[in-house]
């Protein structure tokens, strides 16, 4: 089925690039808000991964009309509509957690949170 080279798969390669960039931000950066932005970049690239194969050259949006005969595949669109809303719900929950962590620790940097946790642990060890 597959015959083309890099040019025919450019959309997929860029999708992979965006996905991996999101993954890198999630792993490498310690700031919780930056991590969440990376997570949403990752999510958005998955939308592209689903929508791109449904496109047909010369096709039109899947709204039926007597003037057109070729339509893009509507099924990925439906799945991704659901995914977008769920993605925003998870983002909002993650941000709420970040705000609570900021209230408790006074920081949203992973290193500082771990350091604060370790300090509390050391103090308890010293007391016992």
């Amino acid at each position: 089925m597959s015959s083309g080279g890099v040019l025919e798969h450019f959309t997929y390669i860029v999708t992979v690039f965006l996905m991996v960039a999101g993954l890198y931000v999630v792993i490498a950066r310690g700031n919780l808000i930056k991590k969440l932005v990376g997570l949403s970049v990752f999510q958005t690239s998955v939308y592209l991964l689903y929508i791109a194969p449904g496109k047909l050259i010369g096709g039109t949006a899947p709204i039926l009309s007597p003037h057109y005969t070729v339509y893009s595949n509507p099924l990925p669109h439906v799945l991704i509509l659901t995914a977008i809303v769920v993605g925003v719900a998870t983002l909002a929950l993650g941000l709420a957690l970040a705000v609570r962590i900021k209230e408790t620790y006074g920081s949203i940097e992973e290193d500082e949170i771990t350091a604060a946790d370790n300090a509390v642990q050391d103090a308890e060890d010293a007391r016992s």
């Binding site: 597959s2 025919e8 992979v16």
Partner: peptide
Amino acid sequence: LLIYGAMGLPDFADPNAPIH
């Protein structure tokens, strides 16, 4: 790994792809 997998996908906008 993902690009290796993506090269096995049907061409972009191929009307004979299984999805259509």
